[in-house]
């Protein structure tokens, strides 16, 4: 009997030990689940925040790109509007042509020899119709735009030398004249025209490159005159 009672007591004590272990196990399950959920949530939030940051950077890049494209569109729109004006004027040039022949050379040569040679060359080029209008071009083969042709002829006939990268800044490079240009000087017009000034028997005319090709035109052929540049011969 005593042994049985001892056994019961022993079993009881072992059972208490086991119940302690069960308590640890049962309480640890929700704790482990909580920790796992916290970790998963943290990783998800962290990942989402990283993606948000990446998307914000992409958004900024896209905004910059949109800004640049907007500027580009504005520039192109302006350029198109400009070209439209130029083409409209080109259509009206035919009424503003000024014809000249060799008799001008004879009268001008004694006073303006180099300028006369310049004029002769341009007349030949007009007659040959070999030189074409080409926006950005700067050679006989490729063609010229107005300032490029003026630069080419100045470098060929005048003492003044214009660098190729300055050909679109002729108005800043050449000495300005307030008024009364002389034969061989440049007349600057709106829309970028740069035409050589000549005067024969009191009648001024200009020669230079236009969208319709090399032409001799009246001084007031269309666009507004914005200045004159002195060319040294």
């Amino acid at each position: 009997m005593e042994n049985k009672n001892e056994q019961i007591l022993s079993k009881f004590q072992n059972e208490e030990k086991r119940s302690r272990k069960r308590m640890f196990l049962y309480t640890s399950i929700p704790l482990i689940i909580t920790v796992v959920l916290i970790v998963i949530s943290y990783l998800s939030v962290d990942n989402a925040n990283t993606q948000v940051k990446v998307l914000e950077i992409q958004k900024q890049d896209l905004e910059v790109t949109i800004g640049e494209l907007n500027n580009s569109v504005i520039l192109k729109t302006d350029s198109l509007a400009e070209m439209r004006k130029v083409m409209e004027l080109a259509i009206n040039y035919k009424d503003k042509r000024h014809s000249f022949n060799f008799s001008i050379d004879k009268e001008l040569f004694s006073v303006y020899p180099k300028q006369t040679r310049l004029l002769s060359e341009m007349r030949e080029l007009i007659d040959d119709e070999k030189v074409k209008w080409h926006l950005g071009g700067n050679s006989l083969e490729k063609g010229f735009d107005s300032p490029s042709f003026a630069t080419y002829m100045i470098n060929k006939f005048a003492k003044t030398n214009i660098e190729n990268n300055e050909r679109y800044k002729l108005k800043e490079v050449l000495p300005n004249l307030d008024s009364s240009p002389e034969v061989g000087d440049l007349v600057f017009y709106e829309h970028g025209y740069a035409m050589f000034y000549f005067k024969y028997r009191g009648k001024p005319f200009v020669v230079g490159m236009t969208p319709i090709g090399l032409a001799s035109l009246t001084l007031d052929f269309g666009p507004k005159i914005i200045g004159y540049g002195k060319v040294d011969y």
Binding site: S19, M23, P30, T34, L37, I38
Partner: peptide, 27 residues
Amino acid sequence: TFPNEMKSLVSVSGTLVSSVCAFPIKE
């Protein structure tokens, strides 16, 4: 140092951990 979005979740987790004491109390 948890992200702001997780603050309330962490508080709830703290409450859950405390509430697990019900098991030993029951015993």
